[in-house]
Design a protein around this nucleic acid. Structure first.
Lengths: 105, 105
DNA sequence: CTGTATCCTTTTAGATACTG
DNA sequence: CAGTATCTAAAAGGATACAG
């Protein structure tokens, strides 16, 4: 299901980075705190398969690979950005709700 | 992290249902195809802890419990709805991309 | 009706090593 | 640089039983 792809932490974070422009593998790795090489690789492969992200290899030595949002991926990122902004803006409210909930137990 | 809560299939689907109005436990279960009692219960507890969903128990026999979006949850649902709409609208494009990707291997 | 607890199986994630 | 393969440990998920 498509929901399962969207409902993935790394998917959301990768798309957020790619929204700023094309990015190489290890650069993505550095930009996304906590992601492992394996998780990045697997998630990029799925996004590529879904037609949301493009992968371009340049025949340099060593090889250079650039990931970018496709047109479809760009329309998705327009829906994801408000969600991530909401999370950043409201995180304090969520943390406060958690404190209250925990203190009631 | 808040991302992990948002990046959850059941969270998105539960919020979509609650956006239509308050709902009881077993009604949610029926509306959300494939969710187990355990998954529904656990996800509702987390959403309640995060202050996104409220839980109200009515002292009937047997007990009646109503779940609803809080004010905070409502603001979140405003960001989630476009994402779910995107998924519904674009699913054919994604499936076509998958077919092309798979046929290239 | 609305859950929690437990057991058990299946997935997933992390670390490490290795390749073009 | 950009990955894949493998192994293991941890986490998640399903089924069942039971309780207020």
């Amino acid at each position: 299901m498509v929901f399962e792809r969207l409902a993935d932490k790394w998917t959301l974070l990768i798309i957020r980075v790619l929204r700023q422009g094309p990015c190489r593998f290890n650069q993505l790795r550095r930009e996304i705190e906590g992601i492992s090489q394996k998780a990045l690789s697997q998630t990029l492969r799925k996004l590529e398969r879904d037609g949301l992200v493009s992968r371009t290899a340049f025949p340099t030595v060593p090889v250079t690979v650039e990931y970018a949002l496709t047109g479809l991926g760009d329309t998705l990122s327009n829906r994801i950005t408000p969600l991530l902004s909401w999370a950043e803006d409201q995180i304090q409210h969520v943390l406060e709700a958690q404190r209250q909930y925990d203190s009631r137990q």
